[in-house]
Amino acid sequence: MTAPLRDMTPAERARSTSFYEASARTRLELLLDAGSLIEFIGPEQREVSPHLRIFDLPEQFDDGIIVGHGRLDGSPAFVAAQEGRFMGGAFGEVHGAKLTGLLRAAREIGTIPVLILFDTGGVRLQEANAGELAIAEIMRAVMEARAAGVKVIGLVGGRSGCYGGGGLIAGCCSALAVSEFGRIAVSGPEVIETNRGVEEFDSRDRALVWRTMGGKHRRLLGAADLFADDSVQDFREAALELIGLVGPFGLDGLKAEQERLADRLRRFGACLDAVEIWTISGIAHAETIPELPTDQFIALADRIGRTSRDAR
């Protein structure tokens, strides 16, 4: 029997709540210190998409993203959380503008970190031009915030993953934490198959999808800095750890990142499957990686030691 909700401490609730299953609101409520979230442009303001009505589609009062500020272990933090179940968490005009505004506010202040809880398939097709522009604006806003000294932390573990423009924005962040379910990529499985054929990528081969885009591979490649178990409490602890780890942002870091990516391409560019990459990386029995329990996987990933901590 699980204890009744009201008898549990916030940390216990966060520990027993799946990040993957939770709504964006529940994630933020449990990720931040209890009761500390103040939402900007909340649902009662009804800043809905100006486009969906034209397509006879239902709107959501927050346009699928919650932005605001709160406290993380007592320290202030800006937060944004996408709702992956509303239109696949996709970026539209209002959705994107809320995140851009949050990042610009963080840039002006300069010292408060930003946590972005990604859960997105990319740009919302019904407002494609506005959505594409939003992605560009957000990427610029992330880089400007980082240049002003802001740590921008991405957390990826939602049902829609982090695809399309979301994957590009994630690539701009200071650091990322990912769970096993947190797929990160630009083109999704079906998009690759549609454009390049089933021989290039079979989107129905779930094991292939997970080992190509899933959290474990992203962690081993160094694209994600931390691997988190799938509870909101694990993501909270990962966010705190990353805020502590992220170093200053500047030209040296960018050069190191360029070098890291060039080296990655040199070493793995000819590989046809993630298992080959893991094997070349020196992992014995690489084919067992997808089945490894979280604690064993984290120990392995830490031993391999590849992170982007000096780069990015």
């Binding site: 709504s23 609101r25 649902p43 009662e44 959501q60 009062f61 179940r85 509303f86």
Partner: peptide
């Protein structure tokens, strides 16, 4: 003063109450 529950998705709904 207000509260919100649910998500707008297939077979689901959001309710904003004020």
């Amino acid at each position: 003063k207000s509260a919100i529950v649910g998500v707008v998705a297939s077979g689901n709904l959001e309710v904003l109450v004020e």
